[in-house]
């Protein structure tokens, strides 16, 4: 899967899973950016990271390799009321350093994020992933996500995406928006779908 040589890790390797803490931004943020940027054609600006970490740092989890405390994996999320009337969690970024993939690290990070969002009363959790990214689809689908939409030309490279959704409570589908009109719902939706807002 990766060009780099897979480091021989002892089977009992125990990674350390910790929640992001704003006090350690200087230590962690550059590593997070580096890890995530690796898989992107265009990097996110620092503001994208701060947008999430400043408001939902408690929904960011990191997997560290104890000897050096180097960053192996990270998940970044947000949780806020959505115009559809639900309290919606959104998994914005998830990355695992390539030599360490296939060891359940991503699953563990997602699990922690889901649990944290559920504990905060999330109704549902959504995310998008490329239709060709089978490994990512499998990961989320194993945990319980369903594909709710297919999004045409969602990514800059022209690829389509699936929107994945996980309901955490009963009755979520029946929730309705509050005062905000539904008139231009789809317009906002399309922004959501292009990842611009969620």
């Amino acid at each position: 899967m990766a060009d780099e040589e897979t480091p021989r890790l002892p089977e009992e390797l125990e990674l350390q899973y910790i929640q992001y803490s704003p006090q350690k931004e200087e230590q962690h943020l550059p590593a997070i950016r580096q890890l995530i940027s690796k898989d992107l054609s265009e990097p996110y600006s620092i503001y994208v990271y701060r947008y999430f970490l400043y408001q939902w740092g408690d929904l960011c989890y990191m997997a560290l390799n104890p000897p050096s405390s180097s960053l192996i994996g990270v998940i970044i999320c947000k949780l806020e009321p959505h115009r559809s009337g639900t309290f919606r969690g959104y998994i914005a970024m998830l990355a695992v350093h390539s030599p360490y993939r296939g060891r359940g690290i991503a699953s563990r990070l997602v699990t922690q994020a889901i649990e944290a969002m559920a504990a905060q009363g999330a109704d549902e959790i959504v995310l998008e992933t490329e239709v060709t990214n089978t490994a990512s689809l499998k990961l989320y689908e194993r945990l319980g996500f369903l594909r709710s939409k297919r999004l045409h030309r969602y990514y800059l490279n022209g690829n389509a995406a699936f929107r994945l959704v996980l309901y955490l409570k009963e009755g979520v589908a029946l929730k309705r928006p509050g005062d905000e009109g539904m008139e231009d719902g789809e317009i906002l939706d399309s922004l959501v779908e292009r990842g611009a807002i969620s």
Binding site: M1, E42, A95
Partner: peptide, 26 residues
């Protein structure tokens, strides 16, 4: 698309908000 990392396609654990989807999609 030369700059697009094609590893992303087979990347097991990366999903993300589409970067720089500039100003509007409407």
């Amino acid at each position: 698309d030369p700059l697009i990392d094609h590893n992303t396609a087979s990347d097991p654990v990366l999903n993300n908000v589409a970067p720089y989807v500039a100003p509007i999609s409407s």
